[in-house]
Simulated scan of single mutants.
Amino acid sequence: MAEEARRVARVVLLDPDDRILLLHGYEPDDPDTTWWFTPGGGLEGDETHEEAALRELSEETGLTDVELGPVVWQRFCSFPFAGRRWDQDEWYYLARTRQASAAVALADPTELEARSVTGLRWWTYAELSATRETVYPTRLAELLRTLLVEGPPSAPLVLAPDIV
Results as ranks from 00 to 15, higher is better:
Y26K: 11
L120E: 05
D29P: 08
E113V: 02
G45V: 06
G83Y: 03
V117M: 08
R6S: 10
L63K: 01
E44C: 06
I20P: 01
V11K: 09
A9Y: 05
E60S: 03
W73M: 08
A103H: 12
A95V: 04
A5W: 10
A107S: 13
R132N: 12
E113T: 01
R19V: 02
A100I: 08
E4G: 07
L68G: 04
W35S: 09
P80D: 06
G69A: 02
G40C: 00
S129F: 06
E44T: 12
R98T: 15
T110S: 13
V104S: 01
A105S: 15
P161N: 00
R7S: 10
T146K: 15
T34M: 04
L140I: 03
A141H: 12
P137A: 10
T131K: 11
C77Q: 09
D108G: 07
S58R: 12
G40M: 02
E50A: 13
F76W: 09
A160N: 05
P161H: 01
P156I: 00
A130V: 04
L21T: 00
E150T: 09
D32Y: 07
W122T: 01
A9F: 11
L128K: 04
V11A: 02
A82G: 00
Q99E: 13
P70R: 09
R121W: 05
A52N: 05
W73L: 09
L144R: 05
L120R: 09
P153G: 03
G25V: 03
P109N: 13
A107C: 11
G62N: 06
L106C: 01
Y92F: 15
S116L: 04
D29K: 13
G40D: 03
E51C: 04
P16Y: 12
L159R: 04
H49L: 13
L63Y: 03
T61C: 00
V149E: 15
